[in-house]
Amino acid sequence: DIEITTNGEEDAKRVIKELQKRNLEYHIEVHGNQWVIKVR
């Protein structure tokens, strides 16, 4: 598993777009303004 910590929603959406392009499965956890994306 890979864990990507982003700085808020805009940053997270940019990362998610890339993950979707590669058809990767991911899970999002929001901790305040930090979005942690866990990639399987």
Rank of each mutant, 00 (worst) to 15 (best):
V39P: 00
E3K: 09
I28V: 13
H27N: 11
Q20F: 04
L19D: 00
K21T: 07
T6M: 12
V30T: 06
L24G: 02
N23V: 03
Q34A: 05
N23F: 06
I16Q: 02
L19W: 00
E18T: 05
D11I: 08
D11H: 12
N7M: 13
K38D: 02
R22W: 07
I37S: 00
A12N: 02
T6L: 14
R40K: 14
V36S: 01
A12L: 13
Q20H: 08
G32T: 02
E3Y: 15
V39G: 01
R40N: 11
I4N: 00
D11A: 13
H31W: 06
K38W: 03
I4Y: 09
K21N: 10
V36W: 02
V36G: 01
V36R: 04
E25N: 08
R40Y: 10
T6P: 05
E10T: 08
L19V: 03
K21H: 08
V15K: 03
K21V: 07
E9Q: 08
T5A: 07
R14H: 07
W35S: 06
V15E: 02
K17L: 13
G32N: 10
Y26F: 13
E29C: 15
E10V: 09
R14W: 13
R14V: 10
N23Y: 05
R22P: 01
R40L: 15
L19M: 04
W35G: 04
K38H: 14
G32R: 02
V15W: 08
D1C: 14
E18W: 12
V39F: 05
V39N: 00
R40V: 15
T5C: 15
I28L: 08
V15G: 01
V15N: 01
N23G: 15
I37H: 00
N7T: 10
L24W: 06
T6W: 02
V15P: 01
A12W: 04
E18H: 08
R40D: 09
I16N: 00
V30L: 05
T5I: 15
H27S: 15
L24K: 05
E18R: 06
R22D: 04
K38M: 10
T6R: 05
Y26M: 04
G32Y: 02
I4M: 04
V15R: 03
E10G: 07
W35L: 14
I37Y: 00
K17T: 09
H27W: 14
E18Y: 09
G8P: 02
R40G: 10
Q34M: 09
K17V: 11
N33F: 05
G32H: 03
T5L: 13
T6Y: 05
D11Q: 14
V39H: 01
R22H: 11
E25Y: 09
L24S: 03
D1R: 10
G32P: 02
T5Y: 14
E29G: 02
E10P: 04
I4L: 06
T5H: 13
N23K: 11
E10C: 14
E18G: 06
Q34D: 15
N33T: 06
K38N: 05
I28A: 03
R14I: 11
N7E: 12
E9L: 13
Q20G: 05
V39S: 02
V30Y: 08
I16R: 01
V30I: 14
Y26K: 00
Q20K: 11
E25M: 09
I16A: 05
R14Y: 08
E29M: 06
D1P: 10
E9N: 04
E29Q: 08
K13A: 12
N33P: 14
K17Q: 13
E9S: 08
Q34L: 10
K13G: 07
E10M: 09
N33A: 05
R14K: 12
A12V: 06
V15A: 04
Y26N: 00
N23I: 02
D11P: 05
I28W: 03
A12S: 03
Q34S: 08
E9R: 10
E10Y: 08
W35A: 06
W35V: 15
V39Q: 00
T5N: 06
N23C: 07
E29N: 04
N7S: 11
K38T: 15
G8W: 06
V15C: 11
N7R: 10
E25G: 07
V15L: 11
I2Q: 06
T6S: 04
V15M: 06
D11E: 14
G8L: 07
G8K: 08
L24H: 03
H31K: 13
N7L: 12
E3G: 03
A12R: 03
I28K: 00
L19A: 02
K38V: 15
D11M: 13
I2D: 05
V36C: 05
N7F: 14
N33W: 04
A12F: 13
E25K: 10
W35C: 14
Q34P: 00
R14N: 07
N33D: 14
E9T: 05
E18F: 07
E25S: 11
I16Y: 01
I37V: 07
K17P: 01
E25A: 10
L24I: 13
E3T: 15
D11N: 11
E9D: 05
E3Q: 12
Q20P: 01
L24Y: 07
I16S: 02
H31C: 13
L19C: 06
D1K: 07
R40S: 12
R40Q: 13
T6V: 15
K38Y: 09
W35K: 07
T5E: 06
K13R: 14
K13V: 09
D11R: 07
R40W: 07
D11F: 09
N33M: 04
L24Q: 04
V30C: 12
L19E: 00
E29A: 05
I37G: 01
D1W: 15
H27G: 05
I37A: 01
V30W: 06
E18P: 00
W35E: 04
